[in-house]
Design a protein around this nucleic acid. Structure first.
Length: 889
DNA sequence: AGCTCCCGCCATTCT
DNA sequence: AGAATGGCGGGAGCT
């Protein structure tokens, strides 16, 4: 440290006279095209590798260069270039691609601080991963495709496309940024994405893990998601900043915040540019020209696309599901947050702090904190749920895929987990089952799982995709373990194409963002035409061309969009979860409860407190979703916690393995909670895999003979995957609420409705199933589906059936069957992926349409159609188009 | 006169 | 306590 910083400073400070000859040289150099300079630098870097080059440069240009040329030469982008030049794009994994921060800083002759910036962005793309203090492992672009695929999926789930459109509209309509921002915030508090991880890569160091949710990394991922989700792959800085602000923090958005966010975006953009993933462009709107960036990276994404493309129906379904759930989430959120804007402030600042303090305690205990604040913010609502749902669904899909891939491997762990779960939390399972029933009507294990995530109170959903690696690195499909999504954390395992570990995605469900949308958006937005100008003069990719050439089309689309927008807005406004929020009391109580619970947990666990890196796991946030009967709920929570603790005790944790999986959440027994479940909106209560399994089992057993399979599920207690929150509990209640309002039927029928609502999830399921091979979606090799549930095939056609499918699918989920079916290829994941990959490419166009539609879906659609599925569907369609259009615009 | 965004203070979070 | 990280925003360089 000392040397690096000191020397640097010294150099800089001491160095230079601007007027020295060198300075002139530097000036000349700077005058030269940046590209040339960069190339030169790169060459030097390549050659020397390190200091030699740098030194030479420094020595030569030396002091002066620093000052004169400095600004440009010191840019993060250039620095990143230098950095990248030192490592191969596709390093041999077998080799030890170790990166020492100190060395890099020294070699590049830059402050450490700058290296952190670069590493954070690279880490967000999984191009590097921290291996320890001061150490990173270089992955290059090895995992880039996979990461992008996941980010895209998550982004879609997050409804980023819609958000972007909305923001654009707002901006157009409203001149006041602040207002817009506020709206966004209020509405957006939604779910936050924490961090999308790949299985083996992620956190090897506990310390590292704890900071996963840091802003730059997360921001970077979100930023990338925006590109992947938008039709013309162009994202303007202001829109990105607004979206990111909304997610991060509801309340404070000020000009200052915006400025800060923009600064960060520039930082990130510079790194992404050096990676050649994006390019600077300008977008011209009615108002004027604004800086923007265009995606010039890969457009095709393996698994994700396949999933989506394979099941065209899915999007709508998903939407419906999302919608349904959304309301629930809203409710949860509402509880937390106070109505209106206040939530934001309340949540973030105070809540966050509280959460943190609590988290600290929890950490000791093993809890993983999520920031409840955000969730609480979401009062608005409905949208939140959908969003969360979407995210969850996406995650679930991924997980399922992974699971299918992992198949055989999982069984063992699954069995263990199941056993543990059963022993530890038979009660919980039952409760879970009931919950599921309540939520989905029929109990579909898969659905339940999916739902759970969405269930997250909405406050903050954290989706965690943790690698199952705990066991070691499970090659390909290690365990697809879906953490219960009850609370905010939802661990999702993604199959790795390359065979790495699965990805873990951390999603914080923040408050719903519908609000921003909620504003009446004039059609004018739709009308707006955006022109892309290439600053660099580089022609945009085809996408851009299309955009440019098709302004008219955009405009046309825009109008519809506007209409759609209006709908959503109205819905969102009405949504209002605000009304639901009524529970200020709960808010107050919830925290207390949390504390109490935590204290108890600590007491019990005592020494056990493992050092779990993951902070989030346990958080019980104040935001419990309460339904009627809060007091009861509290008790139930406590009980659940106790049971959870017991379970944990029983379970021999291999936390140490992967390094700490935060996930280990303390599962709350959902079952008990059901009617009045306390939903930790803000915090994700990790449901142990066991619990999940338990759910599955229960469901399966009741419904089908999948039981056997269920046992197979691995429960990786692994620290990461390990504990699964029992979001289901929480979720259930919320979902129920939502359903009622939306579907309107509280009666038994609700189950069906719920299924319908879940439909989106079914879509996800379909994807996953397909991937797994359970279902014969795009790929025929799903002999499995038939065995497991012949219905599944039929179901595919109809949404309702989907639900059933989901159920069925779930059963299939058991790794064993899948693997068998896949027997041709041991690696289920691989087989699946390949087909998917090819398929998407073949149907490039369709895919695009797909993506677009989905995006808009989640939030707005949900908002719009609270009531009927059919209605929602119809609405959706238009919305989709609109959304797309808006994006284009 | 903005747009960019470098620099480094200082709060956090590990060790 | 000290080191490692990284949030954040002032303010300067570049257009």
């Amino acid at each position: 440290m000392g040397p690096l910083t000191t020397p640097k400073k010294g150099r800089e400070v001491g160095s230079v006279d601007p007027w020295t000859p060198t300075s002139n040289l530097k000036m000349l150099i700077s005058a030269a095209s940046p590209d040339i300079r960069n190339r030169e630098k790169e060459l030097c870097m390549d050659n020397d590798g390190r200091e030699g080059v740098d030194l030479t440069q420094d020595a030569e240009n030396g002091e002066e260069s620093e000052k004169m040329i400095s600004r440009k030469e010191k840019s993060l982008g250039l620095l990143c270039h230098k950095f990248l030049a030192r490592y191969p794009d596709n390093p041999n994994p077998a080799l030890n691609n170790d990166i020492c921060l100190d060395d890099v800083a020294t070699e590049l002759n830059v402050e450490r601080r700058r290296i952190y910036d670069i590493m954070n962005v690279l880490e967000s793309l999984h191009m590097v991963s921290r291996s320890a203090k001061n150490r990173y492992t270089w992955h290059g672009r090895t995992k880039l495709a996979q990461t992008l695929a996941i980010l895209k999926q998550v982004g879609e789930e997050h409804k980023y496309g819609q958000q972007m459109q909305q923001i654009r509209h707002f901006d157009g309509e409203e001149k006041e940024n602040e207002e817009v921002v506020v709206d966004l915030e209020n509405g957006e508090g939604q779910k936050e994405l924490f961090f999308v991880e790949l299985p083996g890569v992620e956190f090897k160091a506990a310390s590292v893990n704890s900071r996963k949710d840091k802003s730059l990394r997360v921001m970077s991922q979100k930023f990338v998601m925006l590109f992947l989700v938008s039709n013309p792959r162009v994202v303007s800085l202001d829109v990105a900043a607004k979206i990111l602000i909304g997610e991060d923090q509801g309340a404070d958005q000020d000009k200052n915040k915006f400025k800060t966010k923009v600064r960060r975006l520039y930082d990130i953009a510079n790194v992404l540019r050096s990676l050649k993933l994006i390019e600077k462009v300008h977008v011209t709107e009615e108002r004027g020209r604004k800086p923007a960036f265009e995606w010039i990276g890969p457009e095709e994404f393996p698994q994700v696309k396949d999933l989506e493309s394979s099941t065209p129906e899915c999007p709508p379904k998903k939407r419906s599901v999302l919608e349904t759930r959304t309301p629930v989430e809203n409710c949860a959120k509402n509880l937390f947050s106070s109505p209106g804007t206040k939530r934001g402030f309340t949540r973030h600042p105070s809540l966050i702090k509280l959460a943190r303090s609590i988290q600290d305690d929890r950490r000791k205990i093993n809890s993983a904190p999520s920031s409840p604040v955000k969730s609480s913010l979401n009062d608005s609502s409905n949208s939140d749920f959908p969003n969360k749902m979407a995210q969850l669904a996406a995650i679930c899909k991924i997980e399922l895929d992974q699971e299918s891939a992992t198949g055989a491997e999982h069984p063992k762990p699954a069995a263990a987990a199941a056993a543990a779960a059963s022993s530890a939390s038979s009660e919980a399972d039952v409760a879970a089952a009931t919950r599921l029933k309540l939520i989905s009507g029929s109990v579909d294990p898969p659905q339940a799982l999916l739902l759970t995530p969405t269930q997250e109170p909405g406050v903050n959903t954290t989706v965690h995709l943790t690698p199952h690696t705990p066991l070691g690195a499970l090659p390909a499909g290690s365990v697809a373990y879906i953490s219960a999504q009850c609370s905010s954390l939802i661990p999702v395992l993604l199959p790795q194409q390359q065979g790495g570990g699965p990805y873990a995605v951390y999603l914080q469900s923040s408050s719903p963002r519908p609000n921003p949308l909620a504003r009446p958006q004039p059609t004018s937005l739709a009308v707006r035409s955006m022109t892309f100008e290439d600053k660099t003069g580089q022609s945009p990719t085809t996408g851009q061309c299309a955009a440019k050439s098709q302004p008219a089309s955009r405009a046309s689309e825009g109008s519809p969009q506007a209409l759609k927008r209006l709908h959503p807005d109205s819905a969102s406004e009405s949504s209002p979860s605000k009304a639901k929020r009524t529970d200020p009391n709960f808010k107050d109580t919830s925290p207390k409860l949390c504390e109490i619970l935590q204290a108890r947990l600590k007491a019990r666990r005592g020494a056990q407190l493992s050092s779990r890196p993951s902070p989030r796991a346990l958080h019980l946030d104040p935001e419990f979703v309460n339904t009627p009967g809060g007091a009861v709920a509290n008790q139930t929570l406590e009980q659940s916690l106790e049971t959870f603790l017991d379970r944990e005790d029983k379970m021999a944790n291999s936390d140490s393995e992967a390094g700490l999986t935060p996930v280990r959440a303390v599962p709350l027994t959902p079952g008990q909670l059901h009617s009045e479940t306390l939903v930790p909106a803000g915090y994700l209560i990790p449901i142990s895999q066991q619990s999940l399994i338990g759910y599955k089992e229960a469901q399966c057993s009741g419904r089908e003979s999948n039981k056997a399979s269920t046992p197979t599920y691995n429960i990786y207690q692994t620290p990461t995957a390990g504990s699964r929150p029992s979001p289901a509990q929480e979720i259930t209640p919320t979902s129920l609420r939502l359903h009622k309002p939306a579907a309107a039927a509280a009666s038994p029928l609700t189950a069906q409705q719920a299924h319908r609502l879940h439909s989106p999830s079914p879509a996800i399921l379909n994807f996953t199933l397909q991937n797994l091979g359970l279902i014969s979606g795009s790929s025929p090799g799903n002999g499995f589906t038939a065995p497991q549930t012949p219905e599944g095939a039929h179901a595919l056609a109809s949404p309702l059936t989907l639900q059933q499918r989901g159920m069925v699918f779930i059963k299939p989920v058991s790794p064993v069957p899948i693997q068998q079916s896949l027997s041709g290829q041991p690696m289920a994941l691989i087989s699946l992926q390949q087909p998917l990959m090819t398929t998407p490419k073949g149907t490039g166009l369709p895919q695009h349409s797909f993506f677009h539609t989905p995006v808009p879906l989640s939030p707005l659609a949900a908002m719009v159609t609270t009531s009927g599925h059919l209605a929602t569907k119809t609405v959706y369609i238009p919305q989709r188009k609109l959304d797309v259009a808006t994006e284009d615009s």
